[in-house]
Nucleic acid binder design. Structure first.
Length: 532
RNA sequence: GCCCCCGUAGCUCAGGGGAUAGAGCAGAGCUUUCCUAAAGCUAAGGUCGCAGGUUCGAAUCCUGCCGGGGGUACCA
């Protein structure tokens, strides 16, 4: 929470929100809880930053921006010292790896075919390893020299040589109840919350609970005691550990300095949820890189006695940068989440304006209506871009793709919906009356058949999406349905149908399509508009 | 080293035992006196990383290999 939200944070929010809606729609009693990171080292960082580097004027004017700046500055200084500490070791490793690779290349190749192959492979691996180390060494050196070439920054780095330890101390002090840090935290937290809330509001995302990590802090000591009472913990290298079958490393629940960790918090969270909500299942919508952690957490929770509950790590892939590495906001690169939403809405508005201008003046929307459409379309495009991806795979972040309004996008589906509404409006159709009249649906054209078949598969799509917690199965369905409708729209005149029977039948198909699309999008928390 | 995930069209990705493997984007072409062309349609584009195996049948399951990403004792 103490750092600005960036594009990587959108997946958890959007996927979790969609799953929550889908499961609820199927009749489950769902509790959504935003497990906010409001208690970690990041707060130690901004507390440290505030103490040493704050620009009071800037903070008074725009606290969040200033806190963001402080976070980035402290991060950079910490990384610098980390890097300096790692440098000699890395240099040595790189040199050693290089020497190994060179030696292997000069060694005689075994005559035995199998052995020769093995030898070849070993060389390849050694060369790769050497290259990898050389690359990371170069990266590190570049990073360090960036700081060193910036006089004022380098000066700060020199002055704050102990920053890493100090940040941990600030965090520890906060946790220990230090009054000053506590009051700083209480001052920062509402700012950070408000900043995040702004994003949630724009996304239309709501939670039943937002019990952050800090909420569980008072329970952590008891959790460790309870585990100890069960004989589950061992002290190893000064840390309080839970050793679990099938895992090399233990789950540490209390550090040697006495501090608790997220594993402890997560156990406390399970305890709390089981006591207060008695769920049948707990889903964790979290990046797949935390898979190991959850495997351990679930195993520990079972051992602790929570057998009657299904634990699910609903993991999702990493958002990658164009370089194929996990996406990071680079220095100076300000594509935060807020900027991304702005971008999506601006792009949509541009398209709305361009297309609406081409229409008859009498059919055009006023600027307020256009802005509303742009908002719905822009935000929808963004969410859909994420949801339509198989959640388990990584994906390459592309602004262009995220704000695209053509092809397999929410826009396409919203457009199909708006076309239906256009027909109803133009024809002056009282759709409720038509539904009540109970006219028959008559299938004559292939396009009608295709559309009708698609309509019948809605429940299957929802059930499939819920079964594996995969919203993309629902987006696939909605896209296919919208495609069927587009063909139908092209080939089968509705208002100018050949007979009243055919006209009523087609109107009913339109109605069913619109309702299905709207309901489906609603499950993804994507809105529709009557005209666009 | 050990563990997890991925490799499908030029690019980004669906499909995860059953028919001639799909879409979007990019590129070629066509469609607007007709309910919204943010659309529709046509053609082109693939030894589904490689090699074995299981099966009546494998992109899909198993094994090995190659390539990429991630995790791996006190960050979350």
């Amino acid at each position: 929470m103490a750092k600005p939200m960036h594009v990587g944070h959108i997946r958890s929010t959007v996927i979790g929100d969609a799953l929550q809606r889908i499961l609820q729609f199927l009749g489950n009693d769902v509790v959504s809880d935003n497990h906010l990171g409001d208690w970690g080292t990041q707060f130690g960082m901004i507390i440290y930053g505030y103490r040493h580097f704050v620009d009071s004027t800037a903070f008074a004017q725009a606290p969040i921006a200033e806190l963001g700046r402080l976070y980035r500055l402290v991060r950079e200084l910490m990384d610098y010292h980390d890097g300096c500490a790692r440098l000699p070791d890395l240099k040595q490793q790189a040199a050693a790896a290089r020497a190994t690779a060179d030696n292997m290349r000069q060694a005689t190749v075994p005559t035995d075919k199998q052995e020769a192959k093995k030898h070849d492979k070993a060389i390849k691996q050694a060369v790769n390893r050497s290259k990898e180390l050389a690359d990371s060494l170069a990266d590190l050196q570049a990073k360090l020299s960036r700081v060193e070439s910036n006089r004022s920054l380098h000066k700060l780095a020199t002055q704050h040589a102990e920053i890493n330890e100090s940040v941990l101390q600030e965090t520890a002090k906060l946790h220990a109840g230090d009054e000053e840090n506590r009051s700083l935290w209480e001052q920062f937290l509402p700012q950070c919350r408000a900043d995040i809330q702004e994003i949630y509001d724009r996304l239309g995302v709501k939670f039943n609970f937002e019990l952050g990590e800090s909420f569980y802090h008072p329970m952590l000591a008891d959790v460790v005691l309870a585990l100890a009472a069960k004989g589950m913990v061992k002290i190893s290298e000064g840390a309080t550990c839970v050793f679990l079958d099938g895992f090399d490393a233990p789950m540490i629940v209390r550090k040697k300095d006495g501090a608790f960790l997220y594993a402890t918090t997560d156990l406390a969270t399970i305890q709390y949820r089981m006591k207060h909500w008695q769920p049948d299942a707990i889903l964790y919508v979290v990046d797949f890189r935390q898979g190991d952690h959850f495997q351990k957490l679930f195993a520990a929770a079972r051992q602790w006695g929570y057998h009657q509950v299904e634990f699910q790590h609903v993991s999702f892939g990493t958002v990658m940068g164009p370089d194929g590495k996990p996406f990071r906001t680079r220095a100076g690169d300000t594509v935060g989440l807020a900027g991304l939403l702005d971008e999506a809405e601006a792009k949509a508005l541009e398209v709305v304006n361009r297309l609406d201008d081409q229409r008859e003046p009498s059919e055009q929307m006023d600027s307020a209506a256009r802005r509303e459409v742009a908002k719905v379309v822009g935000i929808g495009a963004l969410k859909y871009a994420d949801l339509s991806q198989n959640r388990t795979s990584d994906y390459e972040f592309s602004l262009e793709k995220m704000v695209a309004l053509e092809g397999n996008t929410a826009t396409y589906i919203q457009y199909a919906y708006a076309r239906v509404q256009g027909i109803f409006k133009r024809g002056g159709i009282d759709i409720q009356q038509l539904r009540d009249a109970g006219s028959a649906i008559v299938i004559a054209d292939d396009a009608e058949r295709q559309l009708a078949l698609q309509l019948l598969q809605f429940d299957e799509a929802i059930i499939d999406a819920a079964a594996d917690y995969r919203p993309n199965l629902l987006t696939n369905y909605l896209y296919e349905l919208a495609r069927s409708y587009a063909s139908f729209f092209d080939r089968c005149p509705v208002l100018k149908a050949e007979s009243d029977n055919q006209r009523d039948s087609r109107l009913l198909l339109c109605d069913l399509t619109a309702r299905t699309l709207k309901q489906g999008l609603k499950l993804l928390n994507i809105d529709v508009v009557d005209r666009m």
